[in-house]
Amino acid sequence: MGVTDNPHPKGDLTLSAPKPPLSLIDFCHIYPGETARESMARSVTLAQRAEELGYSRIWYSEHHNMKHIASSAPAVLIAHIGAKTEKIRLGSGGVMLPNHSPYVVAEQFGTLGELYPDRIDLGLGRAPGTDMNTLGRALRRDANAADHFPQDVMELEGYLAGRSRIPGVEAIPGAGTNVPLYVLGSSLYGATLAAQLGLPYSFASHFAPTHLEHAVSTYRENFQPSEKLAEPYVIAAVNVTAADTHEDAVRQLQGVYRERVRSMAGRGRFLTDEQLDGIIESHHGRQIIDMLRYTAVGTRDQISGYLEDFTRTAQADELMISLQATSQEEAMRGMDILAEAWELDPAHTAGAPGA
């Protein structure tokens, strides 16, 4: 499928309900020739502009040993960006909980919750966020740690609610902050767990599109109300490449495809353009590109129409946008176009689901 196709997901072309809020996920991408410091400085600029435009929240994802991603420590990054912004919600998308002690995560995000009241989210994933060598030798993580994810989530929730399961142990800061938790996932596992615990669910359809509809349906059909959340709440992630002309948006997305294939298939090796073209045309290359299946590409009206349909397909209460561009300038312009297309309200202040 070519980038010029820009197919709509299934559904009508307009929404009957109000448009859901838009949020962003920022991978703190390090562009060629750039340093991590420059990447993080750009993340501050992006957050400030997103706040001005009316985006609801920005999440930062935990990755390790990835040369082009600077968000290895979401809590530290959130603390810095929180000091440079005023009202936009900031959170993890997510913290890979099996990499950490739930108690330490409660202290970190409890600290953030005290520093920035009613602005902090804690999205939780069970994947390692890295390669197996880094996982075992550098992070020193038990290969079976992910098996304890449900218990770790409940333990963490207890610390933040002031109901520690360990006598005489409290998270300070943390206890009583009730930082809202979100279960992240790309399969039925996370959907089922979020439904059982009565927590909001965020699906990673921006890079793992295959099980979107099944997972969301499973979550909604099996949701059990909790003291945190009375009704199911779905955040669905989707890629956006927006530009002033369709041709420019297509050019940008083609560049994104090439860099993604280069990074994932090249594994750090130098690839000539001819070699890269060959990989892109291969089955493996097409699989990598298909990870970005849910991508809105084009002008303001094209983006708006695609996202309206995607909202229905994903049964989404909120959209988490991954801006796909080949430079920060293009990403910033795309963010402006998207805000205009979605008619965001700069006066809007986001809250946690059910808040």
Rank of each mutant, 00 (worst) to 15 (best):
S39C: 12
E86V: 07
A75T: 11
L77K: 12
V76H: 12
A36K: 13
N65I: 06
S43E: 04
I58G: 12
L90Y: 06
A36M: 13
E52P: 08
Y60I: 09
A50P: 02
A70S: 12
H64E: 01
K84V: 08
I58C: 11
V76C: 09
A75R: 06
S61T: 14
P74S: 05
E51M: 04
L46T: 15
E51F: 13
V76P: 10
E51A: 05
A41V: 13
R49K: 15
H68G: 06
N65Y: 00
R42H: 14
Y55D: 01
P74W: 01
K87T: 09
I81P: 06
I58T: 14
G91S: 08
S43R: 13
H68R: 15
V44T: 14
G54C: 09
R49D: 05
S39Y: 04
E86Q: 14
I69Q: 05
I88N: 00
Q48D: 02
A50T: 08
H63A: 14
A50K: 14
G82W: 01
S56P: 07
T35L: 07
G82K: 03
E62D: 08
G93L: 00
T35W: 01
G33R: 02
G54R: 09
E86P: 06
Q48E: 03
A79N: 12
A41H: 12
I58Y: 00
L53P: 00
S56M: 13
H80I: 01
E62I: 10
G93H: 02
S43A: 10
A75G: 06
T85E: 00
I81S: 01
G54K: 09
S56N: 10
A73S: 15
M40G: 04
A47N: 04
G33E: 01
E38M: 13
A79V: 10
S61M: 12
R89L: 04
T45M: 15
L46P: 14
S39Q: 13
R42Y: 10
E38T: 14
R57L: 12
N65A: 15
E52S: 12
S71T: 15
A36D: 11
Y55C: 04
N65W: 02
G82I: 01
I78V: 14
H64Y: 03
K84R: 11
K87N: 08
V44S: 00
